[in-house]
Amino acid sequence: MRVPRVLAIYVGRVFLLSTLSVLGGLIAIVALFDVIELTRRAAGRPDVPFGRLVEITALKLPFMAIEILPFAVLVGGLVAFWRLTRSSELIVARAAGVSAWQFLAAPVAAGTLLGLVAITAVSPVSAMFYARAERLDSTLLRGGAGTLGLSGGGLWVKQRDDALARGGSAILHGERIAAVGPDQLTLERVSVFRLGPDDRFLERIEAERAVLEPRRWRLEGAAAVGAERMGPRNATLTLATDLTVARLQDGLAPPDTLSFWALPGFVSVLEEAGFSAQRHRLRFNALLALPLLGGTMVLVAAGFSMRPSRRGGVGLMIGAGVAAGFSLFVLTKVVGEFGVSGALPVMLAAWTPTGVGLMLAVAMLLHLEDG
């Protein structure tokens, strides 16, 4: 039958335009608040120009779009279906025998497609830009506390080194991570490069191992390396630091700075090094669930906004739809924390909000069609 197909495409076009408009508006609002927050943080730093703050926010826009997308699909769907119901277009279609499932096919496909585009195309751009924004934020507003890198089981750390020269820094490289505990980290075959305030090389230290303890690195079997030779490794040296195991793990490529395609490989690297990869696994599964969540939000919006206006209470139903979307957002954060802590399996924590929303939407639409 041609009429349901044409109607589905028409409803899908109205839904898509409404969703993209809502998404643009929500991104603008969030970006405005982010600029205000960055301006507040930069209030005591007159050397930070306002343009750099705007640049940080602009770099975060793709990440914001992915995070806001499910709520934008919900609100866009509520607006689109309410307008179509108010103009009696959907009421006439249903009176003519067209099922809600038929004319919702295109909007559901559009919501799912938006999720697919977000994780496959926008996610790599988002990760690259967000990592750049975090580096700018760290350099301009957090004083460049330190940078970290992890590859092949080895660890690179750059930190402040005020003991050697004020404003100096130290670059520490461990070839192998020997042990990781809640309060202690041990690296083997360690090199330390100490730099002055102008990044001028001052000293190099080679050590058999380095142990991260509260407020310091303990370098065992350490020796200074001269221009021609290295002295005997028989000293135990200390290097002051404000790093902790928790801060190291948080700084090793946070999940938000990795694309959907890069997350599985980095999870393997983290686990080989002995670090927990719960947050990265949760992020990967949450992105994997995004297309299904997009389609689910379309069904939730339809269930709350397709009530005929002659029955009254339309505004209350739309408000309930927004509240349901906010509840799903809160549920996502709560079960996500349980997933990170290990209290829930990561897959269950990532997919629960989508499953709950899908069951709610299907129940409401079945009641709307047959009840």
Results as ranks from 00 to 15, higher is better:
residue 174 G to K: 01
residue 264 P to N: 08
residue 246 A to V: 06
residue 212 L to W: 08
residue 275 F to G: 04
residue 165 A to W: 07
residue 233 R to W: 06
residue 183 D to F: 14
residue 172 L to C: 02
residue 286 A to F: 06
residue 195 L to R: 06
residue 243 L to N: 00
residue 264 P to C: 04
residue 203 E to H: 06
residue 245 V to A: 02
residue 233 R to Y: 07
residue 196 G to N: 11
residue 302 A to L: 01
residue 240 A to E: 08
residue 170 A to G: 06
residue 294 G to E: 07
residue 200 R to T: 13
residue 205 I to S: 04
residue 293 L to T: 14
residue 243 L to S: 00
residue 192 V to Y: 05
residue 195 L to A: 03
residue 307 R to F: 01
residue 246 A to K: 08
residue 285 N to P: 01
residue 167 G to L: 00
residue 250 D to Q: 13
residue 175 E to M: 08
residue 254 P to M: 09
residue 192 V to E: 03
residue 197 P to T: 13
residue 170 A to C: 10
residue 182 P to C: 04
residue 231 G to M: 10
residue 168 G to Y: 11
residue 243 L to Y: 07
residue 213 E to Q: 09
residue 238 T to W: 00
residue 210 A to Y: 01
residue 173 H to K: 02
residue 196 G to W: 12
residue 211 V to K: 05
residue 169 S to Q: 14
residue 182 P to L: 07
residue 174 G to Q: 02
residue 298 V to A: 02
residue 260 F to Q: 09
residue 171 I to V: 15
residue 272 E to H: 05
residue 258 L to P: 05
residue 255 P to F: 06
residue 197 P to F: 11
residue 253 A to R: 14
residue 291 P to V: 05
residue 239 L to F: 02
residue 180 V to N: 13
residue 292 L to P: 08
residue 296 T to V: 15
residue 239 L to R: 03
residue 306 M to E: 09
residue 194 R to Y: 12
residue 233 R to G: 14
residue 193 F to Y: 12
residue 296 T to I: 12
residue 266 F to G: 08
residue 232 P to G: 04
residue 214 P to V: 07
residue 259 S to M: 14
residue 271 E to G: 06
residue 246 A to P: 02
residue 290 L to S: 02
residue 199 D to Y: 07
residue 300 V to I: 15
residue 293 L to I: 05
residue 198 D to G: 14
residue 254 P to A: 07
